[in-house]
Simulated scan of single mutants.
Amino acid sequence: MFRFFLILLFVVCSSCKYESQKSSQNFGSDSEEKKYDLYEPSEMALHMNVMFDIQKSIKEDIQNGTTPTDFPEEILKIHSAQMSDFKERNQTFEAYSHLFVEKFELIFDSTSQVPLEKRYNDAVKLCLNCHQTECTGPIPRIKKLLIK
C-alpha cells in the first residue's frame, strides 16, 4: 500500500512539473506575440450611444418639468457617421434617420400644441421602428427612454 502511494505521489509531482514547463514555454516566450481581436465600435455605434445619452437627459428634463430649448446639433451626425464594415446605409436607414431628425426637432418646437411627452416619445418610437429592421440588439435599452 505504501509503495502504491509513493508511485502515485511521484506521478502527480511529475505531471505538475511537466505542466509547469509547458505553460512557461507558452507564456514566457518573447518570440511569439499574442494578438487579440478586440471589438472596436464603429463611428455610428459610438454616435448611437451619444444619442442615447442626449435622449436620456432630455427625458429627465421633461420628467422634472423642464422644457428643452436647444436642439443638440450632435444629433445630425446620424447622417454622416461611418457605419460598421458589415452594415451599409440603405434606403430604410436613410428614411428613418431623416424622419427621426424631423421628429426630434419637434421636441424643441415651443409653438407646438402636441404635448411635449408625446413629441419626445414619437422620436423614441422612430428609433425603435428603425432598430426593428436592422440591429435589434439595443431595443430593450431604447425602450427605457420612453416616458410612461
Rank of each mutant, 00 (worst) to 15 (best):
K56R: 01
E32I: 15
S110M: 14
S20R: 12
K56S: 07
F2K: 13
R3S: 06
H47E: 01
Y18I: 12
Y36P: 03
Y96M: 04
N49W: 09
V12M: 11
S97Y: 09
K22T: 05
L99A: 02
V114D: 07
G65P: 05
F27C: 04
F71E: 02
L8H: 05
S20T: 15
I78G: 03
N26Q: 12
F10G: 10
R89A: 10
L116F: 08
K103H: 04
F71Q: 09
L46I: 09
T111D: 08
D122W: 03
Q132Y: 09
N64A: 11
L146D: 00
R141W: 08
S23I: 14
L6G: 04
E40V: 12
E73C: 02
D122L: 00
G65R: 02
E88H: 12
F104G: 03
E88F: 03
E32S: 13
K118W: 03
P72G: 07
L38I: 12
F4S: 11
F71C: 08
I54L: 13
G65Y: 03
K148A: 05
Y36A: 10
H98L: 09
D37M: 14
N26H: 05
C16H: 00
M48S: 14
Q25A: 15
L116G: 02
L128T: 01
I54K: 02
A81N: 02
E73T: 10
N121T: 00
E60R: 09
R89C: 00
L76M: 10
S20L: 13
L38R: 12
T92N: 05
F71I: 07
S14F: 14
G28E: 03
E134A: 08
N129G: 08
T133S: 13
K103E: 00
C127M: 14
N90I: 11
F86K: 00
N129C: 01
S24C: 02
K118N: 02
E94A: 05
Q63D: 04
K17Q: 14
Q113E: 10
I62C: 02
K118G: 01
K35H: 12
K144E: 08
E32D: 14
Q132C: 09
E88D: 05
S80F: 07
E74G: 00
I107Q: 06
